[in-house]
């Protein structure tokens, strides 16, 4: 059987794709913001906190990083209602993404903080700087510089991973695929278009992060 590729009907459904892109962007930004907050506070707890806090952070990071995002999402969306916590798809998706990304950013921020040599911190204190001043003027900048590239690639991976939320019927970009697919029966064309759109988003993200990095760190 000969199969001719036909994109016209798929392109005609551009509004569905646009709606999906917007949801994907909202999910990505919410998760990046939440994940970064968790990452910074948990990494600070991991590096500077008391032993009990360190243990808790280590357990959180290990548990999340060794289980699939899809299962975490199902546990929150399908599992929590039996404990009396009922969440709509979008909320469950954001919570799952934030918890998941938080574990990875914690590791990245921790590595960034520990990349600053001990002797520099000691040099700072010996100049009479307070703990906060040491953090602000000695640790923060090189630590950020070390962690930003890793954070950027983690964020791109996260943006791509948001496609998983379509499995709990959140109307993101990947969900748009199944809508257009059932309307046009052009399976292969639909997934090609979706793939190209995700690729464009990934390049956009990489471009923005590269620009930010250059702006903040290039000439120093």
């Amino acid at each position: 059987m000969k199969y001719g590729l036909q994109f016209r009907d798929v392109f005609a459904a551009w509004e569905a794709f646009l709606d999906g892109v917007l949801i994907t962007l909202v999910l990505s930004f919410a998760a990046m913001l939440g994940g970064l907050l968790i990452g910074i506070s948990f990494a600070a707890g991991r590096v500077y906190g008391p032993p009990i806090l360190r243990r808790i952070v280590v357990i959180y990071v290990d548990v999340i990083r060794n289980t699939p995002l899809l299962v975490q999402l199902f546990l929150i969306f399908f599992g929590l209602p039996s404990l009396g916590v009922r969440l709509d798809g979008m909320t469950a998706a954001i919570i799952a993404l934030v918890i998941n990304l938080g574990a990875y950013t914690t590791e990245i921020v921790r590595a960034g903080l520990e990349a600053v040599p001990r002797v520099q911190i000691e040099a700072g204190s010996s100049l009479g700087l307070s703990n906060f001043q040491v953090f602000r003027y000695v640790v923060l900048f090189p630590a950020l510089k070390a962690m930003v590239p890793a954070l950027a690639s983690q964020f791109v991976l996260l943006m791509l991973a948001t496609s998983i939320v379509s499995q709990i019927s959140v109307p993101d970009l990947f969900h748009a695929a199944s809508i257009v697919q059932s309307r046009t029966f052009r399976d292969f064309e639909v997934y090609t278009v979706i793939g190209v759109l995700y690729l464009a988003l990934a390049f956009l993200f990489r471009g923005i992060f590269a620009l930010l990095y250059q702006r903040a760190f290039a000439r120093r």
């Binding site: 199969y3 998983i164 399976d187 292969f188 997934y191 995700y198």
Partner: peptide
Amino acid sequence: QVVQGTPLLVWLFGLYFGLSILG
């Protein structure tokens, strides 16, 4: 660049539905 810029789900679904086109 292309593979690391697209979600695994797109590959799974695209190939699941697309391989039949190739027979």
